[in-house]
Amino acid sequence: MNGQKILQNFNDNEWKTAGLIKKAEEGIKPGIYNIYLAKMAETNNKAYEGLILLIDKQEGLVYQQANKDFISHKLDSFSSPPPIGKNVSIQYDNHEKLSLTKFEVPTKKQNLKI
């Protein structure tokens, strides 16, 4: 999408653009992210690691890609919104507490010998 972000909803058997078309955050690779398939996060001693894709303030949700799954977290569970386009670890502890840790995904480097 030429570095742009488009949010679409499926209504009345067709996809409709919701919101503005704007520049995608740094760290999010171009592609189609089917966040409508997101599962609500389990909050009983569970951890999720992955990329923060979107913060939907209207719905009060934070969307994260954890491996090949999409997870939604309640925005009001965070003391401050997580950084979009960054890899984070979100740890739930006994339904009440949530801790957020940023981490860097190791890059694959190839060494060429001549």
Rank of each mutant, 00 (worst) to 15 (best):
K23L: 11
I35S: 05
F78C: 11
T17G: 03
D56W: 05
F70D: 04
D12W: 09
V88D: 07
K16Y: 02
E42I: 09
K23F: 04
L53E: 02
N94A: 10
K74S: 04
K74P: 01
L54M: 07
I28Y: 03
N34K: 14
E104T: 15
H95W: 06
Q110A: 15
Q64F: 09
I84G: 06
D93Q: 12
E14C: 10
E96D: 13
I52L: 14
P82E: 14
E104G: 09
Y92I: 11
Y36G: 14
Q8V: 08
S80C: 05
V88S: 05
I35W: 01
S89W: 00
K86C: 14
E14R: 10
N34V: 10
I55K: 01
V62Q: 12
E42T: 07
G27S: 08
K108Y: 04
I35G: 02
E25I: 01
T107P: 04
I55F: 05
K16M: 02
S80P: 00
A38N: 04
N67V: 09
L112M: 04
S79W: 01
L54V: 00
K108D: 05
N13M: 09
V88L: 11
I6D: 04
K5T: 05
I6H: 06
S77L: 10
Y36A: 09
P30Y: 00
K23A: 15
K39E: 11
N67H: 07
S79E: 08
L98V: 07
Q110G: 12
G19Q: 06
L61M: 11
P106V: 12
K5H: 02
T43N: 05
L20P: 00
H73L: 02
V105H: 00
K5N: 04
S72Q: 09
S80G: 03
G27K: 07
K29Q: 13
N34D: 15
D56K: 03
F103A: 10
P81W: 01
S77F: 04
I84K: 13
K29R: 12
Q65H: 06
Q64R: 08
Q91K: 15
F103V: 06
G31V: 03
S79L: 07
T17R: 04
K46S: 05
M40W: 12
A38L: 08
D69W: 03
L61N: 10
N34F: 14
A47G: 04
Q110E: 14
V88P: 02
L37H: 11
V88Q: 10
S72N: 08
S99P: 01
I52E: 04
L100C: 11
T107S: 15
I84Y: 09
I84E: 14
D12Y: 11
V105N: 06
I21M: 08
I55P: 03
P81I: 01
S72C: 09
T43M: 10
K68R: 12
Y36Q: 11
A24W: 02
E104A: 14
M1P: 02
E59K: 05
D93S: 14
F78W: 06
L51M: 08
L51H: 02
F70C: 05
L112A: 02
I55M: 06
